[in-house]
Write a protein that binds this DNA or RNA. Structure first.
Lengths: 155, 155
DNA sequence: TATTGTTATACTCTATAACTATA
DNA sequence: TATAGTTATAGAGTATAACAATA
């Protein structure tokens, strides 16, 4: 009944990641992926993907924001913002109002329905965030600071 | 010449992220995205995407590994592993050897050419990793530990 | 000319389900 | 029946480039 020379099985604790195990980028991807899925699972019941949720939240917090500024805030190209806006708009979660001062700009704002959806979503978001916060614990501020610096400084 | 009521311009420091600014998941995505792009830019000159690089590295460190175990190591479904393996194999960076003991299994190993590519890539990988390490600094062990815990525990 | 947003398009990444072959 | 890997397929997410309207 001795332990035999198993060939890299199941839970993969026997896989040697080599230098990858020390690579921040790799673990960043795996963690992001896990967090993304967990959020999607919760919020998916209300049909709001993480990216759409982020956009809706930014619009809620910045009434009148344009798509360019929104894209910069969530780190997406304006051409990637368009379909998000269209989807949110189709669902009447946001309003689009052409700026009188500059008729190229569209001022985005959240609707009552949008706010209601955010409210319904709130407990799930809170659970998700609390999960992450619990894992990260007292280091949260430092942890977030490092993530922001990575985003800003890696050029 | 007083500061006027600018409408959320350029570098977007005026955008209020609201609760998103405290959301670990959001910053995880932005940081991962930035790191991924930075790596792709460097390694792209040698035609090796981050995902392919990770796979090649795991194969190098685990000669004879199968695609299932590889997928678990890099957190991808076996059906997502197949095209990676095909690409690496077509480029003769890896060898595929049917296991004699279990003819369903394919034992993967890196070739001389694969090793040579990893060697050519090494300085770029080192630069990338060093960049991240510099940003994260002395907290690296703790930072990596948190990323791993997020991946493991968020269920 | 420059800027805001849209469109056409294409590419990458990924997974689910059904499949083959082996066990 | 179960497992290793493949295939067919589809969907999400994203960007580049060209464009229209407006500035």
């Amino acid at each position: 009944m001795g332990v035999r020379k198993r060939e890299l099985p199941g839970g993969s604790p026997l896989v040697n990641l080599g230098t990858l195990d020390e690579a921040i980028g790799f673990h960043l991807r795996v963690a992001q992926d896990a967090s993304f899925r967990a959020f999607a699972r919760r919020a998916g019941q209300h049909d709001l993907k993480p990216g759409h949720f982020a956009a809706l939240l930014v619009i809620a917090n910045n009434p009148g924001i344009g798509q360019g500024a929104l894209g910069r805030a969530i780190a997406r190209d304006k051409s990637s913002v368009t379909p998000i806006i269209q989807s949110l708009s189709r669902r009447e979660l946001i309003d689009r109002l052409t700026s009188a001062a500059d008729r190229r700009r569209i001022q985005l704002s959240i609707t009552k329905a949008g706010r209601a959806l955010l409210r319904r979503l709130a407990p799930h978001v809170r659970n998700h965030d609390r999960n992450l916060d619990t894992i990260v614990g007292a280091d949260k501020a430092r942890f977030l600071g490092l993530l922001k610096r990575i985003a800003d400084e890696i050029s």
